[in-house]
Design a protein around this nucleic acid. Sequence first.
DNA 1: CTGTTTTCGGATAGTATATGTCCTTAATTC
DNA 2: GAATTAAGGACATATACTATCCGAAAACAG
Lengths: 162, 162
Amino acid sequence: MILKSQVEWVLHCCAILAGLPEGRYLSTKALAELHGLPKEYLSKALQSLSQASLVETTLGPSGGYRLARAPSDINFLEIVEAVEGKARSFTCTNIRENNPCRPAGYCDSKPCAVARIMWEADEAWRDTLRRVRLSDLVGTLSEEVPADIWRSTFEWVLKRAG
Amino acid sequence: MILKSQVEWVLHCCAILAGLPEGRYLSTKALAELHGLPKEYLSKALQSLSQASLVETTLGPSGGYRLARAPSDINFLEIVEAVEGKARSFTCTNIRENNPCRPAGYCDSKPCAVARIMWEADEAWRDTLRRVRLSDLVGTLSEEVPADIWRSTFEWVLKRAG
DNA sequence: CTGTTTTCGGATAGTATATGTCCTTAATTC
DNA sequence: GAATTAAGGACATATACTATCCGAAAACAG
C-alpha cells in the first residue's frame, strides 16, 4: 500500500500556491523547477487538482495555477484524494460467498465484518487528513523553514508568477 | 493506495484458524477451497503469516497451519502487516532539497512537515487496526453468521483438519 | 522402506498500475 | 503573428501485484 509520489508533489505545490498573492498564477514550469520534478508528469498531477476544483487556471504566458479557495478552507484529504482517488484502500471481494457450506442463493444482511473493520481504519486515516488544513501546513513551514530561505523562495516564485 | 487482496484472504483464514481446536492443523488446500481462492498463491500469503510468527506449521499429511497465539493476543495490524509489510504508505523523497534557493549543503533539522502530517494519518490507521483483536472478529462473526452456516462450516473444517 | 502429503522457497509469466515522455489543440498574452 | 500556457491523448517504461509451476525437505501411512 503505497501512495503515489504525485501526492507528495501536489502537497508541496499547494503550499507554494498558498503563499501566492491574490490574483497571481504560477506555471507548471516554475513549480517543477522549484521542486526538481519532471515538468510533464507534474502537469498531470496539477490537472488532477484542477479537475477537483482545488485550483483555477489561466492559459497563455503569465498563466498557470492558483488556489480556488483560501488555504484555511482546503484540507489535506481533498488534496490527497484529488490525485489518489476516493476509493477505499481495502476492497472486499466477498470471499465468504465461496463458502461451500452456504445454502445456494443465501444473501448477507450486512457487509463483511472483516471489511467493516478495515474500512474503519480507512476512515481514521481520512479523518486525520480531513482535520489538517492547508493553512496549518503553511503555518508550520513558515515557523520551521529558516527565514532567509523562506523569503528568497517566494522572491524566486514571485519573479515567475504571472 | 490499494491493499493486496492477500490481506483479505489471511484475515478470513485467521478467523477460521481461531476456531480450530487446540493442537489441530488446517492445510492450505482446505483454506483455499473454503474461500474459493487459488491454492498456490494463497500459500504465499500463509507463508507470510508463518514468517511473522503468527502461525505454526507442520509438514506431511494432516499437516497445515494453526495460530501461534490465542486469538485475543493477536491484533489486526499484525496480520495486515505480515502480508502488506511495515512500510509507511507515504514516502518522503525530500523534494524540498531541490529548492534552488537553498544554500548548498544546508541540512534540515526536522523531517519534512508534509511527511509528518501524512505519517500521522498513517499512525491513526495503524492504531485502529492495532486496537482490534482477532477474537473481536470471531465474536462478531459468531453473532452475525447464521448459526447453521457457522456450525456446518466448522464441521467441514474439522473433517479436513489434521 | 516406499509413496503420499505437506510447507517452503525459488523461478517464471501475465496483468495492472505508476511513472515518464511526446505531441496536438485551444486559449491567452504581447 | 509568435510565444507561452493548460489540457488531454498516445505511447513507452518501470514497478508491483497476481498467479502458476517446480523441486526440496519434512512428516506420516502402509
